[in-house]
Amino acid sequence: MPRQGASKRFWNSAARENAAWYIATRFQSENKEFFESGTREVDDFLAFAGVGLEASDSVVEIGCGTGRMTRRLAELAGRVIAADVSGEMLQRAAVNLADSPNIELVELSGEGDLPLADGSVTAVFSYITMQHVPTATAQEAYFRSALRVLAPGGWALIQFRRSGVVPRLLDWGGHITHLANGRRTLDRAWRGARVRESALLQQATSDVSVQILPFGRRHVWALAKRAD
């Protein structure tokens, strides 16, 4: 079975075990604060990157989970395509977001492809998702796909693990702590892979700029913008 198939199985199982914890480890349930935290983080991260959404925008969220951040994206943009590798997560998202008619749910293969036409959206957003994708190849493919689907004037804001020894050690400390508490955090579908920032910067083209925005000791944001 390909590694991506194993990843799909892992996240379907995680959704059944405790979706909220595997999405954001400080939560044990999809309660009010779980979704409110998603609202705050969307606003904070867009402000951090200096980008925004308007009612005329269409945005893809890669790794929507059960919709923790999706509802806020749908409040800001006219159309949201909420995508995830896990069908189980998407089933929960469908219930959580039933009152948001401008959201479409899409299940991904996990190989880095986005089933959308070239230049068909104005924004792509992804947080704490790439760090769980099992291969650097698939993560780079997601980034290329994000750039491909951007319309002129559009942007992509995608979070990745930071490269280097110290971020790796910090991540392993977290994995082991969670393992001691009974979580399956040594699975490759949780640990994921690392992409060098230079590999992301190399995706820039004559009409697409790419910036790396350091975010704490363990993460970076890749911000790409397509020229008008």
Rank of each mutant, 00 (worst) to 15 (best):
P2M: 09
G5T: 07
A6F: 08
A6V: 06
S7P: 06
S7T: 14
R9S: 11
W11P: 11
E17S: 13
I23M: 11
A24D: 09
A24Y: 07
S29Y: 08
E30P: 11
N31H: 11
E33G: 07
E33P: 13
F34E: 04
E36Q: 09
S37I: 00
R40V: 00
E41A: 00
D43S: 01
F45V: 05
L46Q: 01
A47K: 12
V51T: 05
G52F: 01
L53D: 00
A55L: 02
A55V: 04
V60S: 12
E61C: 01
G63P: 05
C64T: 14
M69L: 08
R72Y: 10
A74W: 06
G78W: 12
I81P: 06
A82M: 08
A82L: 11
A82D: 03
G87K: 03
E88M: 03
M89D: 04
M89L: 06
R92S: 06
R92F: 05
V95S: 13
L97D: 15
E104A: 13
A117N: 10
G119C: 08
V124L: 02
S126Q: 01
S126F: 00
T129E: 03
H132S: 11
T137D: 14
T137I: 10
E140F: 02
A141D: 08
A141E: 09
F143S: 02
S145H: 14
S145E: 15
L147I: 13
L147M: 11
L150C: 04
W155G: 02
L157V: 04
I158T: 03
F160R: 02
R161M: 04
R162V: 00
R162S: 07
R162C: 05
R162D: 05
I176H: 08
T177E: 13
L179T: 06
A180K: 12
N181H: 13
G182V: 13
R184S: 09
L186Y: 12
R188W: 14
A193C: 12
V208N: 02
S209H: 08
L213I: 03
L213C: 12
F215I: 05
R218A: 10
R218V: 09
H219L: 12
V220Q: 03
A222L: 10
A227T: 00
